[in-house]
Design a protein around this nucleic acid. Structure first.
Lengths: 231, 231
DNA sequence: CGCGGCTTTGATGTTCATCAAGTAAAGTGG
DNA sequence: CCACTTTACTTGATGAACATCAAAGCCGCG
């Protein structure tokens, strides 16, 4: 079950200039030389909570969840991340140990760069340092404001927000295969699985959503959007 | 009501080496030259949501809240910050506008340094850049994990967490003047004011807390700690 | 001293968790 | 490929947790 493959094509990575745009040829070659690329399949664990953090990770393709497991073996999901997100950027400079587990929700390609080379680049390339702090601000703001907004909502608003996240941010479509179970949605919004299911059934009865196996179809986007804001 | 004084003594600021430890004399003098120090009294607003963000702020003394006001004029508090915290560090590099309002909960002394000089230091002093990303990681982790942990708790656990924050992190005492109203606690944990009051009355009846005017006394710290973890 | 904001308690209804029970789907070993 | 096991999904019933409404006391401040 623990199968990981190494991939190679990264020179033309579309996310390269998201963070590495200000590197010169020599610096970029250095990053390349210490970079590892790995593929994780659905369900595979990329990092365990408490693992030593020696590298900086970003997603090329796929989807991952960050989560913690409590004393009763119940998981609590902090966030879900999509391609282009720099997973460990927030903790890599301040924590020796990574405080969350990371698991693949779909087949996921991850790029891994050693923390030391990133630190060296920050020290020697001022423009890269500025890019890093900008990117850190954006990532932390996404996690913080997402949690802050959802804290004010009832279960209908929370569930609507999650579905809209997949529709707007990940798949950019009104029809897609839901990459998480109902239980995982519950773990993400801190509600019971049964009530997540009931809420989604309500959305179906109200002709806001349709289900076709694992496929989900948003039939009334405007109402779903409204519920995610007001509900 | 809008009275702000300028203070001067900063050379020996105890928080200086929290972020500025790696600056040389010349760099430090530069920061000093563009720095403004201000005093805000209880209730004063330091920044309004949406204000243009041209400076970087940190607290010398006092206490502030970060919050947003919704369409119904109800406030929602994101976080409370204590001396040593760098308030705008997370957003200053990525957002033109500050997404929260900041208000003083007590008399508060704030240091303000222009964003441009901070950016220049990041570009030219690699060690300072490393300090900034470390500090950003710590700040974001505090906000994120505080919200994440409280999301799992019932109201007793949430209220207990808030009281312990003031006891452990701010006043470092089991007896102190509560700097927030019951309504503000409610705004911070997204619960109704009435139920915050009821919960605190329960703690009083259970001999966990005592009240003496605005003073709060933690009589059974162990139980309060336990409630903040399990409750 | 009176006004507004903070605090408190009680009553009532809504939202949600939990328990129970069953169906469907997906993975596992022979 | 089929029996078997586990996991995901679903619905209903019940009670706990919480919001809301109402009424009243308190306190600081102009």
């Amino acid at each position: 079950m623990k199968i990981t493959h190494t991939i190679k094509a990264c020179e033309n990575c579309i996310f390269r200039n998201l963070l590495f745009g200000s590197l010169n040829q020599q610096e970029y070659r250095l990053v390349n030389s210490v970079r590892a690329e790995k593929v994780f399949f659905k369900g595979e664990i990329i990092k365990h909570e408490g693992d030593n953090l020696t590298s900086f990770l970003y997603l090329r393709t796929g989807l991952v969840k960050l989560y913690k497991t409590d004393h009763a073996q119940k998981d609590h999901i902090l966030s879900i991340h999509k391609p282009g997100d720099f997973i460990s950027l927030l903790h890599i400079f301040s924590n020796e140990f990574y405080p969350y587990s990371i698991a693949a929700l779909e087949k996921t390609e991850v790029c891994e760069v050693s923390i030391d080379s990133i630190k060296n680049l920050i020290k020697t390339n001022g423009d890269f340092a500025i890019d890093v702090v900008k990117r850190m601000g954006i990532i932390s703001d996404e996690v913080i404001s997402s949690r802050f907004n959802k804290a004010q909502l009832h279960i209908r608003g929370k569930v609507a927000s999650i579905i809209l996240y997949f529709s707007d941010q990940v798949y950019k479509a009104h029809q897609f295969k839901l990459p998480v179970t109902r239980r995982e949605i519950a773990e993400l919004i801190a509600m019971s699985t049964e009530n997540v299911i009931r809420t989604m059934s309500e959305f179906k009865n109200d002709n806001i959503l349709q289900f076709n196996g694992k496929e989900i179809i948003i039939s009334d986007y405007e109402r779903l959007l409204n519920i995610s804001k007001m509900g």
